[in-house]
Amino acid sequence: MKAKVITNFAATFEIDIGLNPDLIMEKGGRYYLVNAQLKPLVRADFYYAGVYLGKAKEGKFFPSFNLLSMLAKKNANRIVVDKKSAWLFICGRDILPKSILRVYGSGKKHTNVLVLNEFGECLGFGRIVGNLSDKSKIDELAVRNVSDVGDFLRRER
C-alpha cells in the first residue's frame, strides 16, 4: 500500500518501478527507500532515512530527484536536451522542440517525461504539451517544466 503512491507516479512515465514495499518507510506523507542494513537503525522518530522518494500532499505526489534518477535508469519516457536548454530547464524554463536531441518512449501529449542532459543525467521532469519532434514550430512549447534540480537552490532562499 505504501508503495502504491510511488508506483502510480512511475506509471505516468509508462514504467513499473518495482520497489520492495517492505523497504519503503513513510513519515508525515514523505516516503523513503531504505536498505536492509539501514532499516534496523530507523526508529519511528526518524526525520530522514535512506533514499528520499518524494512526498504526498493533498492527493498529489511530489517526487524527489532521487526517484526521478531511478526512473531514468529504468528507461522511463525521457528526452535528452542540448546544453543551453539543459541550463534553462534548471532555471525553471520550459523546453522547445528545437532543443530536443533525442526522444525515448512514446512522447504522447499530456504524459510526463524526464528531462536529461547530454550526459544522460536527470535534471527533472515535465509534461509533454506539444509535438516533441516537429522542429519547424519554433515558438511552440514541447515540454512544460514541472520540477527541476534548480529547486535545491530555490529551497535555500
Binding site: 527507500l33 531504505v34 536498505n35 539501514l38 530522514y48 535512506g50 533514499v51 524527489s64 532521487n66 535545491f152
Partner: peptide, 10 residues
C-alpha cells in the same frame, strides 16, 4: 538528497 546518499538515517 542532492548527493544521492542512500545509507543515512537522520
Amino acid at each position: 538528497e542532492r548527493c544521492h546518499v542512500a545509507n543515512t538515517a537522520v
